[in-house]
Structure formats: C-alpha cells, structure tokens
Amino acid sequence: MKALEIKIDKNLCKGCGICVDVCPKNTLESSNEVNEYALFYPRVRDLDSCIVCRLCELYCPDFAIEVKEK
C-alpha cells in the first residue's frame, strides 16, 4: 500500500510531534516552518516510505493529519 498524499493542516497542528514519534518508517520529520500561531508543524520527509498504517491519524490529538491512499 502506498500513500498518494499526506495532508497536514498546518493551522490545526499544534506542533506536538507525536506523529513524528509514532511513525514506524520515519516518513514524517519536524521542520523549521511555523504556522500562524508560531508552532513548528511537521513535514513529509519521504512520501514513498509511507505504508499507510495511519498511526499518525490515530495518535494526532488535533485531527490535523490525513493520509490519502493510492
């Protein structure tokens, strides 16, 4: 299973980094970009490594991340 797109809603994200921690394939990484509340939201490091386990969606406290399947 491959991901088509990983959408991160940067204005819902509070930059807690739980998604980066729970990702088993290190698809996500923390970035230096900030949203309008000056919080560091994550970015996709390597989209091809995503196995669509949706752990980031399950653990995200703010419903800010969405994985679209191919």
Binding site: K14, G15, C16, G17, I18, L39, L58, Y59, C60, P61, D62, F63
Partner: peptide, 10 residues
C-alpha cells in the same frame, strides 16, 4: 500542545 485529551476525544 501534546495533551492526551485530544487523543481520548479521538
């Protein structure tokens, strides 16, 4: 940020 309450809501 990082509070578990959002996860419990989920």
């Amino acid at each position: 940020p990082g509070c578990g309450d959002g996860q419990i809501l989920n």
